[in-house]
């Protein structure tokens, strides 16, 4: 399934998500089972299947990482474990250092530091997304261009992992604050 075709979206990285959400809502409404109550069994089944595909397409396109994966796949490039290049040593070094700094900040319960590290990584993830936007802005990239863009997908996943961790630490701190406010020792 090509999620871009499914929702009538252009094959680009920067999509108008609010417009796309509207398209998804309209399509879902048109495919709602109530609209097919009088239809034959096969037509009902077809509508149900299409509704499921439309939902899946929206879930893919709203998520930057899954959207990038779908873009590479739509251009005929396989993604995933064995198909993507290894991250460069310099990049891994940077990720490792940031993860250690985050672990230290967590241990020290230094929430300001946690937030600052999160903001830094968030900005870098945005910069990677801008490069993906540029890479897919001018129609289908060449094979060489695609290969040069592919490491960015891995970088986004490393950043996502980092930001998930930031979120978990922030939740942990909130729970601790709530427990403290109730007079319960954490």
């Amino acid at each position: 399934m090509d999620p871009f075709a499914m929702l009538g979206a252009p094959r680009r990285f920067d999509l108008d998500l609010s417009a796309l959400e509207k398209t998804h809502r309209e399509l879902s409404r048109a495919l709602h089972p109530d609209k097919f109550a009088q239809a034959g069994a096969s037509e009902r089944r077809a509508a149900l299947e299409k509704a499921a595909s439309v939902n899946e397409a929206w879930r893919v396109l709203r998520d930057p990482i899954r959207r990038a994966e779908a873009l590479f796949q739509a251009e005929g490039l396989a993604v995933g474990e064995t198909n993507e290049p290894k991250a460069s040593p310099a990049f891994l070094m940077e990720v490792m250092e940031e993860r250690e700094a985050l672990a230290d900040a967590r241990a020290a319960r230094d929430l300001a530091k946690v937030k600052a590290l999160g903001a830094g990584v968030s900005a870098r993830a945005k910069a990677v997304e801008s490069r993906l936007t540029a890479g897919f802005a001018g129609g289908s990239p060449s094979r060489d261009e695609l290969a040069a863009l592919l490491p960015l997908l891995g970088e986004l996943r490393f950043y996502r992992r980092f930001l998930d961790e930031v979120e978990a630490i922030e939740e942990e701190a909130e729970e601790r604050a709530l427990a403290g406010a109730r007079g319960v020792s954490p």
């Binding site: 995933g80 474990e81 891994l92 070094m93 490792m96 490491p151 891995g154 996943r157 950043y159 992992r161």
Partner: peptide
Amino acid sequence: LVGAPACGDVMR
């Protein structure tokens, strides 16, 4: 120092 681009894990 290695990493898994498919999941974002890093290992030293």
